[in-house]
């Protein structure tokens, strides 16, 4: 009998997500965004499995340098004779990794700070908010450059730098989401029941203020990818010769007059990825908006 109960409980618990999904799939542009994101993820995984980094991605082949797009090289070759299509496909991995891991870092730190600020209020809130304002006063790319300069240049430092840059955004989003929940009577009820602060934050406040944070995560991935490309373009991101899209743009820059495809394809890849994550974020925001619920 109790086993049955637990089963029912498990199936009921998902109802928030299923409701979200029901609202989400009504939105065609959001669905297009989701499909593209899924395709990009599949490409990243397959490129990683099927292509050999040393042989296909970075090995130079000077005989075939700067070939225009043809049936053999659909997107042409770059100044070292490497196939642009293969490199663009392989590069999806970097953008996704940077986008997702940096957002994970900023979401974890930022949301925790925001939850604490919103829940406790007073001096703690002021302290956290004012320091986020200081960080927001520094242009994000400049801040990332400073962090990269301090810790050296590698993929991990890039993720960390971008992650830290977006901490204030998450902190503010989370705090704003907590404020209306904090004064609800069920929080007071939990306190009367003897529930500790930490448990209240994670089991009552977080689930009830999750929607804006989820949206921010999706938008954050797009921002992270864009910032990573900025930094790589400036030569600060993933070290060459890795086929990061921003780095490829930067490499093709000198040839933009005669061989514009060198910059067009990686740029297009960035655009599509960022666009689809943004479409997803918009769709999620609409789906979580209670005013749209039937």
């Amino acid at each position: 009998m109790f086993k049955k109960k637990s089963k029912v409980r498990a199936s009921k618990k998902r109802s928030y997500m299923s409701e979200l999904w029901r609202n989400y799939k009504k939105n065609p542009s959001a669905m297009i965004g989701l499909i593209i994101v899924v395709v990009i993820i599949i490409i990243a995984i397959f490129a990683q499995i099927t292509l050999d980094y040393n042989q296909d991605i970075v090995q130079q082949n000077m005989k075939e340098r700067l070939q225009k797009p043809s049936s053999e090289h659909i997107m042409g070759t770059d100044q070292y004779g490497r196939d642009v299509l293969v490199r663009v496909l392989y590069g999806a991995k970097y953008s996704l990794a940077v986008g997702i891991i940096s957002v994970a870092i900023s979401c974890l730190i930022g949301s925790s700070l925001g939850l604490i600020a919103g829940y406790y209020g007073g001096v703690i809130e002021n302290l956290i908010l004012r320091s986020t304002e200081v960080f927001m006063g520094i242009p994000s790319v400049l801040l990332a450059i400073a962090i990269m300069a301090a810790f050296g240049q590698s993929l991990f430092v890039l993720m960390l730098a971008i992650g830290l840059v977006y901490v204030p955004m998450f902190a503010r989003t989370a705090r704003a989401a907590v404020l209306p929940v904090r004064d609800e009577e069920y929080i007071e009820a939990a306190r009367v029941s003897g529930v500790g602060d930490l448990k209240i934050i994670f089991s009552h406040i977080l689930p009830n203020s999750l929607s804006p944070i989820i949206v921010q995560v999706t938008m954050g991935v797009a921002n992270g990818i864009l910032t990573a490309s900025h930094l790589s373009f400036l030569g600060l991101g993933v070290p060459v010769p890795a086929p990061e899209w921003g780095a490829m743009l930067s490499g093709g820059r000198e040839f933009i007059r005669d061989y514009s495809f060198l910059t067009f394809y990686p740029g297009f890849a960035i655009m599509i990825t960022v666009l689809s994550f943004n479409l997803m974020g918009d769709g999620l925001r609409d789906a979580t908006d209670p005013k749209l619920k039937q």
Binding site: Y186, E188, V192, G194, H204, N208
Partner: peptide, 23 residues
């Protein structure tokens, strides 16, 4: 916390005093 085991509160609004995400 010890004392609160013996004192409880019933709230006015049965709509906002129950966490909507909990069964």
């Amino acid at each position: 916390k010890e004392i609160r085991r013996d004192m409880m509160f019933i709230f006015q609004d049965p709509y906002s005093s129950l966490d909507p995400r909990k069964t």
